[in-house]
Simulated scan of single mutants.
Amino acid sequence: MAAGGSRRERRKRRERPGVSHCGRKPIAHYVLLSNFTDQGIRTIRDTQKRAEAFKEKASKSGVKIHTLLWTQGKYDVVVVAEAEDDIGATALGLSIASMGNIRTEMLRAFDSADMGKILAKMA
């Protein structure tokens, strides 16, 4: 018998809606585009400490931060993250925005596999 059960058992696991072939929920990707507020600029020397606190808060809320970058241009900070659902990601975004140091725009992002599913559903 193959690792992970019979072929039929593996197929059943793949076919369950909302559950990946590994038995876990699919992961959603997010891009957060942030700008410092006046308060955030006044306390800019604390930005690295705030970033570490943000990563800890994200981890506790089930959001994995892949990348956090300070940038030049239209946005001051860009974050790439993943979460199991929009609710956890949105709660994290609102939580950090409520501190008053940044304003954040959150974008739901799609990897190649998700984009393939989207294209397959097009009429």
Rank of each mutant, 00 (worst) to 15 (best):
35 N>M: 00
70 W>L: 10
40 G>N: 00
47 T>N: 15
121 K>N: 08
67 T>H: 02
45 R>E: 12
40 G>Y: 00
25 K>A: 10
76 D>C: 06
93 G>W: 00
26 P>T: 03
44 I>D: 09
69 L>G: 03
78 V>G: 07
79 V>R: 02
55 K>Q: 05
83 A>L: 05
114 D>R: 04
2 A>G: 12
43 T>H: 11
81 A>N: 02
2 A>H: 13
76 D>G: 07
103 R>L: 04
83 A>S: 15
89 A>D: 01
120 A>V: 03
31 V>T: 15
51 A>V: 08
56 E>H: 13
46 D>C: 04
14 R>G: 03
72 Q>I: 11
63 V>A: 00
97 A>G: 15
22 C>R: 10
46 D>S: 06
93 G>N: 02
54 F>P: 00
5 G>V: 12
44 I>R: 11
24 R>T: 14
79 V>D: 05
11 R>K: 12
5 G>M: 13
75 Y>H: 12
59 S>N: 05
68 L>I: 15
66 H>F: 12
1 M>I: 07
99 M>W: 10
55 K>I: 08
73 G>Q: 03
123 A>P: 07
62 G>P: 01
8 R>Y: 04
112 S>I: 07
12 K>S: 08
22 C>T: 09
69 L>E: 14
75 Y>D: 11
30 Y>F: 15
89 A>P: 01
85 D>K: 05
71 T>N: 04
106 M>E: 01
122 M>T: 02
3 A>N: 03
67 T>V: 04
51 A>C: 03
16 R>Q: 11
93 G>S: 09
69 L>M: 13
79 V>K: 01
71 T>I: 04
98 S>A: 14
96 I>V: 14
91 A>D: 11
39 Q>A: 11
15 E>H: 07
39 Q>E: 13
5 G>S: 15
76 D>P: 07
57 K>A: 08
119 L>G: 02
49 K>F: 04
79 V>I: 12
92 L>M: 11
60 K>M: 11
67 T>S: 02
92 L>K: 00
24 R>L: 15
6 S>Q: 03
70 W>F: 12
112 S>K: 03
64 K>Q: 10
72 Q>F: 10
89 A>R: 00
17 P>L: 03
11 R>V: 13
72 Q>R: 06
